[in-house]
Design a protein around this nucleic acid. Structure first.
Lengths: 210, 210
DNA sequence: GTCAGGATCAACCCTTTGGTTGATGGCGGC
DNA sequence: GCCGCCATCAACCAAAGGGTTGATCCTGAC
């Protein structure tokens, strides 16, 4: 029999780490060799401890974001694969994680068997997506006309942060006319007719950060 | 030595339940006697299984909300005490839980010792608040002038849901002038000058539902 | 009984936002 | 090379939202 898969758990909640450890302990071919309570720690330990797979949360209380840590880890040669394990399935989070080099995206409400299966898939070089996440990606592919462009999402996120068109235009170094054009397109795609309604709709569909 | 404290875990995440079970298993005077994956289940099991303390999440994937379940459990005679254990420390959530009869409010990032201490406090009839939560409640007491009134919060929540002043006025059966007045007061209290900025600020401070 | 604060409404004015039309340049796919 | 999509900008008009003043009524606190 081959060596067990070496895991690093990165989550800021002690209870979640204990839960993952307990759940994965029942799998003889998986071994948790390290835990990190911050994203910075995760980057350091992933390099030091000869880890095969990192289970990475996205939201940490403070400091580096999980997606940044994922990019830092996967950017190195001979690096472990990163499985993102988070509570939310927003488009923005999923795309950020995939772009950062994550091999999979799991939701925390996943049953234990699914978790173990995803870890083995990732270790074997395959990718692992939770059904809900896969569904969202497929929707995005199938209806490209209604998907927001990168720039549109960026503008909408700033609207959600409470900025006026004026403030957005200077933040992005474009004219107010451009901001308005982007927003009109966003309204059309989301089927709304005001900035607040657009933010509400985008939140409901998981298009922007919460 | 007296009988152990009998616990019910109510959380829709299997991993979190496993984590709580693992963390609490190290405490000899605490015993987990039941688990619920939905709020409805929690209400049923709390009645059936002679439970002393319920550890209750607020957000369940679907169905009843944790606050409703808390009210249903604490409303009965001889009922167990409910300790709310959640990820978010928003004013709205905290107040709803306290009004529903919760004996304490803990955050999921709490260290294990704090968790056990809070369970013992609740079982002994004392209340248990996470430091961050206590801080928020004290702030609220100390600065009543800046706290939003019930009606103002209601209007602001509808704004966050994407409604126009027009729609809000007919939803609440008041004039648009009234809605505008409430919003102007909200802007003053939050230190902002637009509806989107008010929503962003209120979200950041946990004044409205997420 | 008074007083503060909340909830309600009106009238006014000004700024911001929304909606439209039209135009330019870049980039990737067929 | 052309077409479609994206990003950029301008000018214009109509509508919604924001800011102010001032007023009434009610309720709870002192």
């Amino acid at each position: 029999m081959s060596d067990p898969i070496r895991l690093l758990l990165a989550d800021d909640h002690p209870v979640v780490r204990a839960g993952l450890r307990a759940v994965l302990a029942t799998e003889p071919d998986l071994e948790v060799v390290a835990e990190a309570a911050t994203a910075e720690q995760a980057v350091a330990l992933a390099e030091r401890d000869r880890v095969d797979v990192v289970l990475m949360d996205l939201q940490f209380g403070a400091g580096m974001h999980g997606a940044e840590a994922t990019a830092a880890i996967t950017g190195r040669a001979g690096s472990p694969v990163v499985l993102v394990l988070t509570t939310y399935d927003t488009d923005a989070d999923i795309l950020a994680a995939v772009e950062a080099g994550a091999s999979g995206y799991l939701l925390k409400d996943a049953p234990p068997e699914e978790l173990a299966a995803a870890v083995r898939a990732a270790a074997a070089g395959r990718s692992a997506l939770a059904p809900a996440v896969a569904h969202r990606l497929i929707d995005r592919m199938r209806a490209p006309g209604t998907a927001l462009s990168r720039r549109e999402t960026e503008v909408l996120q700033l609207v959600a942060d409470g900025l006026s068109n004026q403030q957005i235009s200077s933040r992005l170094h474009v004219s107010q006319a451009t901001v308005k054009t982007h927003l009109v397109h966003v309204y059309g795609k989301l089927g709304v007719d005001s900035r607040t309604a657009a933010v509400a709709a985008a939140r409901a569909r998981g298009l922007i950060r919460r």
